[in-house]
Design a protein around this nucleic acid. Structure first.
Lengths: 330, 330
DNA sequence: AACATATTCGCAAACGTTTGCGAAAACCTT
DNA sequence: AAGGTTTTCGCAAACGTTTGCGAATATGTT
């Protein structure tokens, strides 16, 4: 039984296509009993409206594009998971496009979003994206673009991201309250804006409170580098009482080192991280962390998207407030 | 500058719509120089064909649906990541639908796939799905369905999954070769077919080789349960020399317990897991595991899908061969 | 120069749906 | 019973594209 269309239904019912169409959407123009006849048959033969015809006719789409560097990341995972739920509840679907942190593929993905005339796009740009004009141009085509997580710096556009500064401040305050005096703080690649923001706010906070803590800041570009650094610094007779990790990636390296050295948390060393929230539960005791959850961000991004579709034309930068989740590592 | 269509191009060039359409796809019926004129203008004004019109006209789609219980899972993450790459290279897109392990939502998602007349769908069913007829009926609509990972048991359908038995056999053989004598083996929920297959093959292998190893099999339905079990069994003066984990979920619980008890790998206890491959790298030493990678599975699933679209009508059950990845935990 | 063939292009229908508008039929109102 | 409303429905155009077919023009052959 191939595709059943409005035309077929109309023939079967001795009605016109328009009447069938209207009946199915409870249009007041068609008699109640006719509506029921139509709906009954439609259900019987498993009629499903052809989305392509609808989208063509209405020039509207119920699909959002999501362009991200890569899906294999706890943050994007929770973001997408949450976004998909929101979308589904609003009868939208999600199309996932990975750019592999390659601006060329990213552009190609953007082209496809445009070609598919999607209802809107969520995008987390690659670390190498420097021209965001192609994105902004979509706004002219009435395709709203919401940047999230990794967002362009200066331009006027819709952004939804973690409040990096607030997270770092909260981390620093936590350490100060806990009276940690010798802190090993590990940050990511120094050229990344996220690193710069967190590092700056972290250090500023210690100054602001006039803390006398010794803070040793180092950079690690990967889990492996993070591991090596910690092995070096915590090797023997170290003087640190806590390690701060800027990200999950770094936390993993730190915890590997902790295991290698056979250190006990929090007796031998404390650990505090900024994290998406999954990784900290993998260890004992559970790591204390500042949460930068993709879930919340997705909700914010989605409602911003709906606002844009509804006509809101002004741009806005939203930040998700980080919270401290206490584990047993401090 | 709103949408530019073939008609607009035609007017601008003083050509007919058909000629413009043909020119853009290098049809031999249109003069070489005309083609170039057309293409040039099209590039200039950023023309993008309207996908909806094309799909409607050709009754073809370049989108695949992916229905999974939930995206927040390392296995699905690597599967989707890999599948998206394959899709992109073949000019397809991926629509992600989560069923939240709820058969009702799963059915709803299926309906949407049908409504969108997708080119095909990949589905990993929920643990509670018992009627797969709705899926099979899509085949009548010429929408190929490829089941992956969690697949229905008996019916004739296209399945691509991990070779559970082979993975368990390989695990058992590894333990036998390493001359482990006291084995604590932790499996998932006993009613899951994946658990049954792995448990059976695991035990059978010890029998087959006439091993004299003591194997204690227990079940754990979650990471937390896994943690508790290990705490009980490895608490004090235990006699085990190795713990086998059927899955990542279980491995995480085991490793938490190992950390809680302050055990050193592999000196105090050995650990072997069946895993997707990410989690084992989070620990020191890296956990030795049998790999059941989502990447490989995705490639297999995708090529099977292409075959189906190309007309292959027979169904097939494909299994991905597991491999042993040596870490330092044995 | 006459004809055949090749090249280049346009007409028009079709895909399945939505929707403004008008027509027919039914129902009131007086 | 005549006019006015309301209810119920169908006609036809439109969305942007593809494609079979035929027409017009150009090219080749004798």
């Amino acid at each position: 039984m191939p595709d059943v269309t409005l035309k077929k239904l109309a023939e079967l019912l001795n009605l016109s296509i328009s009447t069938v169409s209207r009946a199915l959407k409870d249009h007041a123009d068609v008699a109640i009993e006719t509506r029921q006849r139509v709906k009954q048959l439609a259900a019987m033969v498993d009629y499903e409206p052809n989305t392509y015809a609808i989208n063509l006719r209405t020039n509207l789409s119920r699909e959002f594009g999501v362009i991200i560097p890569g899906i294999a990341n706890d943050f994007y995972q929770s973001f997408i998971s949450s976004l998909e739920e929101e979308a589904r509840h609003n009868a939208y679907s999600l199309i996932i496009l990975q750019s592999g942190d390659d601006p060329v593929i990213e552009l190609e993905n953007l082209r496809r979003c445009k070609q598919n005339r999607l209802a809107g796009i969520f995008v987390s740009i690659t670390s190498k994206t420097n021209d965001i004009n192609p994105f902004l141009r979509l706004a002219d085509q009435h395709i709203p673009v919401i940047f999230f997580d990794i967002v362009p710096s200066y331009e006027a556009c819709n952004k939804v991201c973690v409040d990096d500064a607030a997270a770092a401040v909260l981390a620093a305050e936590t350490l100060i309250v806990q009276k940690k005096k010798n802190i090993l703080a590990i940050f990511g690649k120094s050229q990344l804006s996220i690193t710069q923001k967190r590092l700056q706010a972290f250090n500023d906070t210690f100054s602001k409170y006039g803390s006398d803590a010794q803070v040793r800041c180092i950079h690690a570009g990967s889990t492996a580098e993070s591991y090596e650094s910690v092995m070096d610094h915590l090797g023997s007779a170290h003087q640190f009482d806590v390690v701060f990790c800027m990200s999950d990636e770094i936390l993993i390296g730190v915890m590997k080192a902790v295991q290698t050295l056979g250190l006990q948390l929090p007796k031998d060393i404390g650990v505090l991280a900024i994290s998406e929230g999954i990784i900290p539960t993998y260890y004992f005791p559970r790591i204390t962390y500042i949460e930068t959850s993709g879930f919340k961000l997705a909700k914010m991004a989605f409602s911003r998207m709906l606002a844009c579709i509804a006509g809101s034309s002004y741009v806005q930068e939203l930040k998700s407030e980080p919270v401290l989740v206490a584990g047993g590592s401090l």
